[in-house]
Design a protein around this nucleic acid. Structure first.
Length: 276
DNA sequence: AAAACCGCCTGTCGGC
DNA sequence: TGCCGACAGGCGGTTT
């Protein structure tokens, strides 16, 4: 669900609404969302505190607090962070946490499937969040060069799709953008990563960056659950070329879109444009 | 080192 | 209409 473009959109959309507002109280409706902190510690740590910045690393959001603590959020499959200007609005069914601001507004954490997580810690303990510690390079950053990408593929004979989904190799790609990137590059998802020619590596590198940036510019992809920080849908679902197109035809050649499990994940591709 | 499975949850959809 | 299994955008843990 939320992949890099969605998480980045949530970050940007929340900035103008939640920064520097006094947190009056926190209600935890689903305790197990908290990974490394008790409910009382969490509530106490946030009360009268303020979010002073929101960062992102891969699919993680980092809420920096005035107290120097950091609240690390991962939305997993169905997590949503929604700002409401009026906290009187009835809560959604699967609300996990509510951060109430003194001015009467609130930030709500909703999560139908309850996979989302929150860590609350000091900067010196940030490395305790394993997913963060082992995160690969940010694909839209300058450090992610073709050279770096090429090195990641080297000596790996596993399916390229699996490698794209592995957050320790590259940060932020999920099933949607992995499929879209492979389609744009004309590469079959089951190709061994180390079998890509220099030209193919370059095409895939460019495709990853192009697709992710385009999706960020379109506020992400709403297939079902994802919403921006103020509850609206993204629009990149209207620009998807291959993901979810089972039973339809390839926009490039008209061939029927193929659909199969690759490394345990449903994958869409064009058998003609993406030869094995 | 890496791949293959399971588990975590709820909701939806298709088949019967 | 109802039941049942499969499946959904993620990832950590364990086993192989």
């Amino acid at each position: 669900m939320p992949e890099l473009p969605e998480v980045e959109t949530v970050r940007r959309s929340l900035l103008p609404y939640v920064l520097n507002k006094q947190i009056q109280s926190v209600d935890v409706h689903y305790k197990r969302i908290l990974q490394d902190v008790s409910v009382p510690e969490f509530k106490y740590g946030l009360r009268d505190n303020r979010f002073i910045e929101i960062g992102r690393r891969g699919k993680y959001l980092l809420f920096y607090l005035e107290s120097q603590h950091i609240m690390v959020v991962h939305l997993r499959m169905t997590g949503r962070l929604i700002f409401v200007s009026n906290s009187q609005i009835p809560l959604a069914k699967h609300t996990s946490v509510v951060f109430a601001f003194s001015e009467g507004s609130a930030l709500r954490f909703e999560d139908q499937r309850k996979f989302a997580t929150i860590n609350f810690l000091t900067p010196d303990r940030l490395h305790e969040v394993r997913g963060l510690r082992e995160m690969g390079p940010e694909p839209l950053s300058e450090e992610f060069t073709l050279e770096v990408f090429s090195h990641i593929l080297r000596n790996r004979k596993a399916a390229i799709k699996g490698l794209l989904l592995d957050q320790r190799r590259i940060a932020g790609l999920g099933n949607i953008y992995a499929d879209e990137s492979l389609f744009m590059a004309g590469i079959h998802p089951e190709r061994p990563a180390n079998s890509l020619t220099k030209k193919e590596q370059e095409r895939l590198y460019t495709a990853i960056r192009t697709v992710l940036q385009d999706a960020v510019d379109n506020q992400g992809t709403t297939v079902r659950d994802y919403r921006t920080g103020y509850g609206t849908e993204g629009s990149f679902q209207n620009k998807l070329q291959i993901y979810g197109k089972k039973g339809q035809h390839c926009p490039q050649c008209g061939e029927e879109v193929a659909y199969k499990k690759v490394v345990g994940r449903t994958s869409h591709f064009c058998p003609t444009c993406q030869k094995e």
